[in-house]
């Protein structure tokens, strides 16, 4: 998408939830393409940092991820960040399953057999639900602690207690009682859909608000009713704005510096959760992510 959008060059294109780090590492968002969310690096590094805070003695780690670019990137970024910060961690298994696998019995058996201290997964959607249900039924969560990248959706789908869950966004952060943007967002979402907003809702809000603020600001600066594309891009490249889940800071590489919430699951909520600051979990602009992760 990004190269095509740049090729055509006439349509503002905003990625709201795709997580691939390639867009940043290969400088694929040059003019009209932007992304208002973090990458798999954000997920992996924030999760690894939190894991080392709550499990400083973690020795053996296994991964169970989906067999496509996202799953491999999530696992590599988490694994490399963890190994950079704690080199004596042993990777005891790397499992990948096809997207939309409906039965994880073999993988669950294998993980029970490996008995690692920690299992990492970046499952989402039906795969996340199936894994949670099937692993719960087999008693996996009593024997192995699991770290869920982008696992926030699982909180409403029977996530067992005591697991490490990364958002990246979570409806109770920033505290809605203190931060009106999140309060209004949660209330509006709740009254319309009957549940607290999930992290993709936050990511979509980031994108919609980013476009809105870029256009409004450009119009005000140029003193016109509708600004032209180059003025919008000029503003978007320098924009920082309040969004429901956090302040979004756009960097010169057209990608947001986004932080991430990580916590421990308890009764469908997160407790002891922590916000990882954007600068702590994203490489500095211009530094390739693999190189930056090694330096952690």
């Amino acid at each position: 998408m990004a190269p095509v959008a740049e090729d055509i060059g006439t349509t503002l294109t905003v990625f709201f939830d795709c997580a691939t780090k390639q867009l940043v590492d290969q400088g694929m968002m040059k003019k009209v393409a932007f992304r208002t969310g973090g990458t798999t690096v954000t997920d992996g590094v924030s999760l690894a940092k939190y894991v080392l805070e709550v499990m400083p003695d973690v020795k053996t780690v296994a991964g169970l991820n989906q067999d496509y670019a996202y799953g491999h990137d999530e696992w590599d970024d988490f694994k490399n960040a963890l190994l950079a910060m704690k080199p004596d961690v042993q990777i005891v298994g790397e499992l990948f399953t096809p997207l939309f696998t409906s039965d994880y019995s073999a993988q669950i058996s294998k993980i029970l057999d490996l008995a690692p201290d920690l299992l990492h997964t970046s499952f989402w959607g039906p795969d996340l639900v199936n894994f949670i249900k099937q692993a719960s039924a087999r008693g996996l969560f009593q024997k192995v602690k699991v770290a869920f990248a982008r696992g926030e959706f699982g909180l409403s789908q029977g996530m067992p207690d005591g697991q490490i869950v990364e958002g990246p966004d979570y409806h109770a952060f920033p505290d809605p009682r203190a931060y009106y943007v999140n309060r209004d967002f949660v209330n509006a979402y709740q009254s319309r859909f009957g549940s607290a907003p999930s992290y993709p809702a936050y990511h979509m809000a980031n994108a919609v608000l980013g476009v809105k603020y870029a256009i409004e600001t450009a119009a005000a600066v140029e003193n016109v009713a509708w600004p032209d594309l180059s003025a919008v891009i000029h503003v978007f490249e320098r924009l920082a704005y309040p969004a429901p889940g956090q302040y979004i800071i756009m960097a010169p590489n057209h990608n947001a510096m986004e932080g991430a919430v990580v916590g421990v699951s308890k009764g469908g909520d997160l407790e002891k959760f922590k916000f990882m600051y954007p600068a702590e979990v994203n490489p500095p602009v211009g530094v390739p992510s693999t190189q930056w992760i090694k330096s952690l």
Partner: peptide, 25 residues
């Protein structure tokens, strides 16, 4: 949405075979 009866099926419990949990479902 994701539709499942897994939470209800959890109520069926499981049987332990040589240290491994086999759900009745």
């Amino acid at each position: 949405g994701n539709y499942t009866t897994a939470s209800l099926a959890d109520g069926l419990g499981s049987v332990e075979v040589l240290g491994q949990q086999v759900p009745y479902s």
